[in-house]
Design a binder for these strands. Structure first.
Lengths: 348, 348
DNA sequence: CTGAAAGCGCTTACAG
DNA sequence: CTGAAAGCGCTTACAG
């Protein structure tokens, strides 16, 4: 049915050279004479020849493939959280392709084995780990990866003692920017919705930025205006219900993620509280939805393209045995309608 | 630095059997005695051994990998369109994993070469093509794939003469359901926003369903209420502007995609027209955003899980040389607020 | 039930 | 600049 694929030997026969020369010519080796090289490549093209990756990989102990492991702590109902990852996936595949790597994708549940075997089986030369959540739970998996001498880059903060290398967003600075923006607009009773425990280091860093901004305005965080929430719209909604129940006055909310912010805005609307007139709301992530909700959400953007480049640079560096440093990139405040800074904000 | 991975030969030495027996034992061959098999597998586990995929693949001419090619006709600004694909990706990787396949992802631009070499280079045993858009443009690529004897499944409609196999949504039926729903609510002047040309077969099928529903109510489509639009919020917005400019009365809109519907609703809101009081709007796709806009969007859902299973079943069947039929799955009307069927609709 | 042997299609020292 | 040869780590007839 399906014709056999041509091999380098077939090309050698047609070109009248040895198979070794074909291999060299195809890889543009300077060892082979230009005319020979051109002839070989010409024939390869005519035959629609492509190097057998399994054979090449077996020989070189490389797969030229990266495995992207996406893990998701949510129950899957809040698919929207994945939007940033989607953009990351897009950018990572492109960045990887530019460097000659394919990307293997795996959606991991936290309970699954973490596919240490991707590298051990020569399916991938390195891993990129992408996920939000509780690092206390991940830690054990990361240790296992490290023990197996797996090369991996983690999307996320720089955590002391954490095995492996990471590339992340400077969440502390982002939290500072968000809060500073609210303060600059004259808001002073700024609620915080999100975690701040160390086991959730991204939230924790954003919280620290929030506190630093308050301090910079000679204020201190008000514990009555702090409500824990994981990353979901529902929990943002519920947090605002609690906030209102407490009765402590507030004029702004810093939600530690866009999803929480959107839930919070819905709760405010349901209670007849106007955003941004009565209360300003700022989120974090800049997921596509943020521009589409009403009022559109002012938020802190993590540039997915930059993130992808950082992660792919890192893992390719590790594969090549180069020294790699864990790094953070700067986030960017995106001003829309939800804080009142742009009264007649352009929505498109 | 990194210790060499163990090979089947290492296990053979430790187990005191031949390398061939190790290979058989690892693959649970009934040929090898249970005790031998258990001993070999035990040692493999202790050594954290994993079969070298390159070697196995070279030998068997299989990669146990599927390539998922996502192509996107938009300019990339309307990332939201990708949401259904994201869900597809999720479900496809899981469905593939269940069948022992990894998934390689590639985000294709229409202008790129379509990586015929995925299969020719033994990187993938088959392809899944995922994208919306204009089949006239794809056609040439599909022919090239077919000419290269590449196995592939296309997400989309069954198109006569189109090379390869497809699995898609019964868009005609979906268009019928959407329109029927509007008719059942007493709407009679139903605008259609979307393409209907054959070169855009998904839109075309939805349009045919729209027409059939109208006929079933003894109505005919009103050409003054038809406005072409590609899949973007912006174009949905603009279509409604044109619709209003024409002055032809209407009480409902069937938008051929959710994104168009959302743009349409925004345009209606900007003109002070109430949805669903004055005008009912129904979309197609049920992207996550659909539940979050206000009013929440009644739409026709394509079940991503079912779609993924269909595509993966198809491609695995093709790989195994089994007969595979192109098939359609049934869409499902999801009733929310935008048509007025659920006055006090639950938004969550 | 097990082993010896061939061979999948490359890459790369080694020799010329 | 080119070729002959080894070998990457498996799987699977072939023989026993």
């Amino acid at each position: 049915m399906k014709a056999e694929n041509p091999t380098s030997r077939d090309i050698a026969d047609l070109a009248g050279v040895s198979q070794a020369t074909v291999s060299r010519a195809l890889r543009n080796s300077p060892l082979v004479r230009k005319e020979t090289r051109d002839r070989v490549q010409q024939i390869a093209r005519e035959l629609h020849y492509f190097v057998n990756r399994n054979a090449a990989g077996l020989r070189t102990h490389q797969s030229k493939t990266l495995a992207l492991l996406l893990f998701d702590e949510t129950d899957g109902t809040d698919k929207s959280m994945n939007l940033f990852f989607w953009s990351m996936l897009d950018n990572i595949t492109r960045a990887a392709a530019r460097r000659g790597y394919d990307v293997l994708v795996s959606l991991q549940q936290l309970t699954n084995d973490w596919h240490i075997e991707y590298q051990a089986s020569n399916r991938a030369d390195g891993l990129i780990l992408l996920g939000y959540g509780d690092f206390a739970e991940y830690r054990e998996k990361l240790d296992a990866l490290a023990a197996a001498h797996t090369r991996f880059m983690i999307w996320g903060p720089i955590v002391n003692d954490q095995p492996g290398h990471s590339f992340g967003c400077d969440n502390e600075h982002g939290g500072y920017q968000a809060t500073r923006h609210l303060l600059d607009l004259g808001r002073s009773r700024i609620a915080y919705i999100g975690r701040r425990a160390l086991r959730s280091p991204e939230h924790a860093a954003r919280y620290l930025g929030y506190v630093r901004a308050l301090h910079s305005a000679s204020m201190a965080p008000n514990e009555k205006l702090r409500f824990p929430a994981d990353n979901s719209e529902k929990l943002g909604y519920e947090a605002v219900q609690k906030l209102l129940a407490v009765g402590e006055p507030f004029d702004a909310i810093f939600a530690v993620t866009d999803l929480i912010a959107i839930g919070a805005m819905r709760a405010l609307a349901d209670h007849g509280i106007s955003v941004p007139k009565d209360v300003s709301v700022v989120g974090f992530d800049d997921m596509p939805l943020a521009a589409h909700v009403s009022p559109s959400l002012t938020t802190v953007q993590q540039n997915a393209r930059m993130a992808a480049e950082g992660l792919v640079d890192g893992i390719v560096g590790l594969i090549k045995g180069q020294p790699v440093e864990s790094r953070l990139m700067a986030p960017k405040l995106i001003i829309r309608e939800s804080c009142g800074a742009a009264a007649a904000a352009v929505r498109r």
